[in-house]
């Protein structure tokens, strides 16, 4: 039986390979780095990024969890950011596929349940499903599903809206520039207008959605924990 592979899978592989190459490059720089000297260039950027992510996680959760949770948050952040801006490299964004965003949101939802169970204990965790009293179990289940839906659909909707709008705008500009004679279907307006829109839809919106996904994941997890100290 022939297995049909969706084209998105190739884009996911491409983005994964890109991230792997980037991390190998950073790793080779970090190995050469002397810990006693002053950090510069790539090393400095990495240090600042790690510090920023740890600060975000520590603000929303507690200190012990920050060391456990921040590697996952950083991984998700890097993956979502690189796939959001992969529209600039003439790839289709993997985050424009609902399976990818649903998977990412499902990981977050499972983490919420795991940390909630870890903090409350088995008895308290089962009791938390029936709070404030027993018939509310239905509402609790719906609220858990809506967390999953809103996390995944927000990212997916923003990215797919950006990419479809870019396609529509390219088609429109191509039809406008075909009115100009002696150009042989060269999309001259596309060259002028598209970079600005790419900056907004790919770079700005991509960075924004990454930040929002990360912040919301952390604060949903932090909501299940005892108050910050």
């Amino acid at each position: 039986m022939a297995v049909e592979i969706q084209p998105t899978v190739y884009y996911i592989w491409a983005v994964t390979g890109l991230i792997a190459l980037l991390l190998l490059f950073i790793n080779s720089r970090l190995r050469k780095f002397d810990p006693l000297s002053k950090p510069t260039g790539v090393v400095l950027v990495c240090m600042m990024a790690v510090q920023a992510i740890e600060n975000i996680v520590r603000e929303k959760t507690n200190k012990d969890l920050a060391r456990k949770l921040s590697p996952y948050i950083a991984t998700v952040g890097i993956y979502i950011f690189i796939s959001n801006i992969s529209g600039l490299l003439a790839l289709e964004s993997p985050t424009g596929n609902f399976s990818v965003t649903l998977t990412l949101a499902a990981i977050t939802c499972i983490l919420i349940e795991v940390f909630s169970a870890e903090y409350r204990g088995a008895k308290g965790y089962i009791k938390s499903w029936f709070e404030p009293f027993i018939p509310f179990v239905l509402i609790n289940i719906i609220s858990k599903i809506s967390t999953l839906a809103s996390l995944s659909l927000r990212l997916f909707g923003n990215i797919i809206a950006g990419s479809i709008l870019m396609k529509v705008i390219y088609a429109m500009l191509a039809s406008i520039s075909s009115l100009i004679p002696f150009l042989h279907d060269f999309n001259i307006f596309g060259v002028i207008v598209a970079p600005v829109l790419h900056f907004y839809f790919d770079l700005f919106s991509g960075a924004m959605q990454t930040y929002i996904f990360v912040i919301l994941s952390v604060s949903f997890i932090g909501k299940e924990l005892p108050s910050n100290d």
Binding site: M208, I212, I215, L216
Partner: peptide, 9 residues
């Protein structure tokens, strides 16, 4: 930013 994102959903 979080408030705007949630209402944007």
């Amino acid at each position: 930013i979080i408030g705007a994102a949630i209402s944007e959903t």
